[in-house]
Amino acid sequence: MLTAKQRELLHFITVRLEDSGISPSFEEMKEALDLKSKSGVHRLISALEERGFIRRLPNRARALEVIRQAEDSVAAPRAKSSESTHDNVVPLRRPTPVQRQIANDVVELPLHGRIAAGVPIEALEGQSTLPVPAALLGPGEHYALEVSGDSMIEAGIFDGDFALVRKTDVARDGEIVVALVRDEEATLKYLHRENGMVRLDPANGAYEPQVYRAGEVKVQGKLAGLLRRYH
């Protein structure tokens, strides 16, 4: 059984996720529940997590997932409304059925060095990470590579961009892939297969396609998105 504050916090988080897809900050939760410090919020979050009502998502800042609702939920603290039956209470809008909702927050992707968008260079190395908005990613496991070169500029991929790559070893013709060449070098190109060969096409008229035997090329992932920093 949850305490009144635990029920209020659970509903507050649920409504915020429904409205914006982003879980509230600890400061927002502290103010909404009229608590004196964030340590009180931490205790409430831990209690809800232990009881199986919410879950913290790994590698995401501020990311909470609502797993289930309390049967005796009360309204979360919100702005006063003309529908209020009490000065500080708004009628509960129950989600029916309760759906598992994930905050649209930040994911720390492994950053595996630089990948050529021109001549192939060494890639898939390095131990750093890159914070990426979760909304840019779909299902599956992802990693990031920094683009080096200008051979994909006609596809909107520029030197210094970060390629967000979904891990896979299969791809269809015409897709932009990370291709590992001869188990040594990687490049970002359009994939085409013809007559038992693999052709890696650039998106820049100044560059020629690269043609290899099928066994010399392995697909390491497909382009899922781009992240660009402006300086």
Rank of each mutant, 00 (worst) to 15 (best):
T85G: 01
P58G: 07
I54L: 06
Q99E: 14
D105G: 04
P91Y: 09
V66E: 10
T85I: 14
H112S: 11
P97K: 06
P97A: 07
A63S: 12
F53Y: 15
D72R: 10
R56Q: 11
P77V: 12
V119P: 02
A63P: 02
F53T: 05
R62T: 03
I115W: 02
P95Y: 04
P91M: 04
H86T: 04
L92T: 03
I115R: 05
T96V: 15
E50I: 08
E83W: 12
A61G: 10
A116S: 15
R62M: 02
V98A: 07
S82A: 15
Q101N: 08
R62N: 12
I115P: 00
Q69K: 01
I54T: 07
V106A: 02
S73M: 06
R93H: 11
V98T: 13
P97Y: 08
P95F: 04
L57V: 15
L64F: 14
N59T: 00
P58Y: 04
L92H: 07
V107I: 12
R114I: 04
V89K: 02
I121W: 00
P120N: 03
H112A: 06
R56A: 08
A116N: 02
G118F: 00
R93S: 14
A70C: 13
A70I: 01
L111T: 00
P58H: 08
D87N: 09
A75I: 02
A63E: 09
P77C: 12
A75G: 15
E83A: 13
H86D: 10
P97L: 10
P120G: 05
G118N: 10
S82F: 12
K80C: 09
E71D: 14
L57D: 08
V74F: 05
I102E: 06
